[in-house]
């Protein structure tokens, strides 16, 4: 907070100085109240009825308290009314509960706002003062008279008054641009430290149970069929039509039906029905197009790349193409 170029006279007084006559004499010399600061190690009077402008501080407290009550009503009553969830037969918005929460928030806001206001007032109360002799804490009294555009004759008069009141030292306080102390930096450091990023933990997102159609995990017991090849055949790599039949039955019939009509048991649960594979629209597709649908999926149908090897997918395509000619369903081949 930069300060205007200003000069001031500071005078140090011994402990037993009479303050009131000094101030009175300064006022008579034409110095305004705002130009005089008396710095003491203790309050000189018991006055505790601060006014900011014309408003007493306690009015700010009361207003903050009312805001606190409103916030308490919002939390305890508003959030419950907005998202009502029945618990234990209790009313959604309970008066005693709103009362308790509002009481606490009222106090919180009243106290915090009063505190902030007094902090701001304290900082503004000594805005012009740059120096404070630490001997004040030893019991001395320091008076400061700010002199903005005061004539030299007046300055001499003020000096005289101060000396007559019994000052031990009088100094000219030449102003320097006083920078705000590093409170801003400190606040920034604290805020940065508070930005601890909470790790997004994935509680219970991965379940040990097996989802339907989930592939077995690495620890399959002895005797399980390895994932890479469903067909346990020895010797030739040519996958026969019978392989296509088996693979269709295992992987496709639950949606497309045992005969490929699109009427499998799962079809009832699907909004977009599985295709009827006998339909000319499907049958006129090229082998590659069918292979592509099988590999990359289509709409709701999942991709089978990774689930089935390329050879397995080709054999299914061969089987699908042969469907219209078959009389019996896949599970009776």
């Amino acid at each position: 907070m930069a300060m205007d170029e200003e000069e001031a006279l500071t005078a140090l007084f011994p402990r037993q100085v009479e303050i009131d006559p000094l101030v009175h004499s300064l006022r008579e010399a034409g110095i305004s109240e705002a130009q005089i600061s008396i710095m003491t190690p203790l309050p000189l009077s018991e006055r505790a009825s601060l006014r900011l402008g014309s408003m007493p501080l306690y009015v700010i407290t009361i207003m903050a308290g009312l805001v606190g009550i409103a916030i308490g009503i919002f939390f305890a009553g508003g959030t419950a009314a907005m998202y009502p969830l029945m618990t234990g037969g209790k009313p959604i918005v309970g008066a005693p509960i709103v009362g308790i929460i509002s009481y606490e928030t009222m106090m919180l806001f009243a106290i915090v706002v009063t505190f902030i206001t007094s902090v701001v007032t304290i900082k503004r109360a000594h805005r012009g003062v740059t120096q404070r002799d630490s001997r004040v804490d030893d019991g001395y009294v320091m008076a400061r008279v700010s002199l903005s555009s005061t004539s030299t004759a007046r300055i001499a008069l003020i000096r005289n008054l101060l000396q007559r009141a019994g000052s031990l030292e009088i100094q000219i306080e030449s102003s320097q641009k006083a920078r705000e102390t590093q409170s801003g930096k400190a606040i920034a450091v604290v805020l940065a430290a508070m930005c601890l990023i909470h790790g997004c933990s994935r509680d219970m997102q991965e379940q040990p149970s097996y989802e339907p159609q989930e592939a077995p995990r690495l620890h399959s017991p002895l005797g399980a069929v390895p994932r890479d090849s469903r067909a346990v055949i020895t010797g030739s790599l040519e996958l026969s039509m019978s392989e296509g039949v088996n693979l269709f039955r295992i992987n496709c019939s639950h949606c497309h039906g045992t005969t490929g009509r699109g009427n499998g048991p799962a079809a009832a649960y699907l909004k977009e029905k599985p295709a009827d594979l006998h339909n000319p629209e499907v049958q006129t597709l090229s082998d590659s197009a069918l292979y592509d649908v099988l590999t990359r999926g289509k709409d709701v149908m999942p991709p089978f790349r990774g689930e089935l090897s390329a050879k397995e997918r080709r054999s299914i395509v061969a089987y699908v193409k042969s469907l219209p000619m078959l009389e019996k369903p896949a599970n009776q081949q």
């Binding site: 219970m204 379940q207 040990p208 149970s209 097996y210 989802e211 339907p212």
Partner: peptide, 8 residues
């Protein structure tokens, strides 16, 4: 394990 029930 039953896949319909969350493991807590």
């Amino acid at each position: 394990l039953n896949p319909d029930v969350t493991v807590r």
